[in-house]
Design a protein around this nucleic acid. Structure first.
Lengths: 147, 147
DNA sequence: TTTATTAAAGATATTTAGGTCTTTATTGCG
DNA sequence: CGCAATAAAGACCTAAATATCTTTAATAAA
């Protein structure tokens, strides 16, 4: 469904959110530990997310990753998936047929379309903040061990 | 979602069904042409499907791939996906969290679970035969060009 | 029985996703 | 200023998915 890279990206952003709620500005090593992913790979992913302005980074002593006030509330999972997987993720045929759409439907288009749409709506509803809140409330866990 | 290989597998089986309705027993080259996929790669996939007894093959002149009478009606897409992707396809967390289930839910488990279940039900309902029938009725197309 | 035709099998090649290493640029602190 | 800590950037490496090539085995027709 989602690539491992996209999964890391989502969980990394949640880690930043949780850390910032504790008044901390995590670096990529902290994030990698939180989400149990390879440090250097997380570093690459954070670069991408920073380049697309989902968050900010500062180098040097005391540096790390953090959200700006204006963006903090507005990172939908949809945005993350769009950046990491590309826009075609939300439209391409789930069964590999060419030119599959309402006008030229593949044999599963009509049944699959509402499922894909439901998934898209989920990604458009949930935010990094909402995931973090669920974790803080104890309704869910970020990793195997809670952060 | 599904791997390219699984997509090929489903479409290849539909091609076999459509050809057999026309009284023909297609070889992997015919199938590859039908579904617009690489010949030798299709050959490999057909080997797998044959090994798992989703269909039969005969070598030599006049050979090719075909369904046995008993299996013909019973190939659910679920079976194909299970064979090609493995059983964990239907249970693994959509967001890469460890140990994600009802008892230890990731922050999206409760919302994602029904979507995954709907997809699973779709795969358990639709069969190779049902897809082929839609195509024959003109309700859908197999490839860019109809077969 | 020979030949043409076909799938099976196994080795190899290519591409893409995932992951690592090294160097450089930036920042804060002593 | 000089040093330590940190992210950025680019080169590189590895593993998995995708694709191809070559040889062998089976089958039917001439």
């Amino acid at each position: 469904m989602l690539s491992k890279t996209t999964e890391y990206a989502i969980r990394a952003l949640v880690s930043v959110e949780l850390n910032s709620r504790k008044g901390q500005r995590p670096g990529f090593k902290t994030i990698a530990r939180d989400i149990d992913a390879p440090e250097q790979y997380v570093a690459k992913i954070m670069q991408t997310l920073t380049r697309f302005k989902l968050l900010k980074s500062v180098r040097g002593r005391g540096g790390g990753f953090f959200f700006t006030e204006d963006y903090q509330q507005d990172i939908f999972l949809y945005d993350v998936v769009w950046i990491m997987e590309g826009k075609t993720f939300f439209t391409r045929c789930g069964f590999g047929f060419k030119h599959c759409d309402a006008n030229n439907p593949c044999p599963l288009h009509n049944e699959y379309e509402p499922i894909r749409e439901a998934f898209t709506q989920l990604l458009k509803k949930e935010t990094i903040r909402s995931l973090a809140t669920k974790i803080e409330k104890g309704e869910a866990v970020l990793s195997r061990l809670s952060v």
